[in-house]
Amino acid sequence: MRVMERLLRLVLAATLVLGASRAMADEVLLTLTGAVRDGQVMITRADLDAMDWHEISTSTTVTDGQPRFRGVLMRDILARAEASGDTVTAQALNDYIIDIPIDDFRNFDVLAALYMDGAALTPRDKGPVWIVYPRDDHGVLADIRYDMRWVWQLTALHVQ
């Protein structure tokens, strides 16, 4: 009996410790709604960590030089959420809302960036997630119509 009790306590303690260390990892970064699996999919940092990460260097309209961005591909996120539709309505922390054609993510390697020049993006900058287009690789992307789709402080995606 004592042994059982001790074992139980150990398991409980281990669970607590692991849970604490995973608090950050379990934080929901993105909420996908609409035409996705079960109508709603939460994407946590752990989910993103489990996906393939990519890196692009590109100029932006609001910074100098060509920062190096690191993150996962938007199309991978949508695939993970089993999204099916033509348009994604992206929403940011400050309620900035814009419709983005899903074709953009198929045609270009659009990144959901979490790091810029090695530093993690935070809500005090343009994080935690910034939609980044490979602007320097495709001439067509150097256009205000695409620049408007670079949503920073991204929090939600509604697929339709």
């Binding site: 309209t61 609001v62 910074t63 100098d64 030089g65 922390l93 400050n94 935070t122 809500p123 005090r124 900058d125 343009k126 920073w152 402080q153």
Partner: peptide, 19 residues
Amino acid sequence: QLRVDLLVSRLNLLRDGPQ
């Protein structure tokens, strides 16, 4: 906290190169 974060991010944006 959210409002502070957002204001800081906007001030950061104003301090970025082009702006």
